[in-house]
Amino acid sequence: MNRPPMSKADYVYDVLLGELRNASIPGGTPLKANSIAERLGVSITPVREALRRLEKDRLISYESHHGATVIDLSDDALREFYDVRAVVEGLGAKLAAERITAEQLDELRRVHRSMLDDAARERHDLLGEQSRRFHLLITDIGGPAFLGRQARAIRNSYPVPAGASLWLEPVRAQGHLDAHQQIIDAFADRDGYTAERIMIEHVRFSGRYRADRDVG
Results as ranks from 00 to 15, higher is better:
R3K: 13
P4Q: 10
P5H: 14
K8I: 06
D10Q: 15
D10M: 12
V15P: 00
V15T: 14
G18Y: 03
E19I: 02
L20P: 04
A23W: 05
L31G: 01
A33V: 12
N34G: 02
S35E: 14
A37W: 13
T45P: 05
T45V: 15
V47M: 14
V47Q: 09
R48W: 02
A50N: 05
L51M: 12
R53S: 02
R53Y: 00
E55S: 03
E55K: 04
K56Y: 09
D57W: 00
S64N: 08
A68S: 12
L73F: 14
Y82H: 13
Y82R: 05
D83C: 09
D83H: 15
V84T: 10
R85C: 11
L91E: 12
G92S: 08
A93N: 13
E98K: 15
E98P: 07
T101V: 11
T101K: 10
E103F: 07
V111S: 05
H112P: 03
L116H: 09
L116S: 08
L116Y: 04
D117C: 02
D118W: 13
A120K: 13
G128Y: 02
E129F: 07
E129N: 09
S131L: 10
R132M: 07
L137D: 04
T139K: 06
D140N: 12
I141H: 07
P144M: 09
P144L: 03
A145M: 09
F146I: 14
R149H: 10
A153W: 14
I154V: 13
R155H: 08
S157G: 14
Y158K: 11
P159Y: 07
V160Y: 02
V160T: 05
A162N: 08
S165D: 04
W167L: 14
W167E: 13
E169D: 13
P170I: 15
H176N: 06
L177M: 12
L177T: 06
L177E: 08
D178H: 10
Q182L: 11
I184G: 00
A186Q: 04
A188T: 01
R190F: 07
D191S: 01
I198S: 04
M199N: 02
H202G: 01
H202R: 01
R208W: 00
A211K: 09
D212L: 05
V215P: 03
V215H: 15
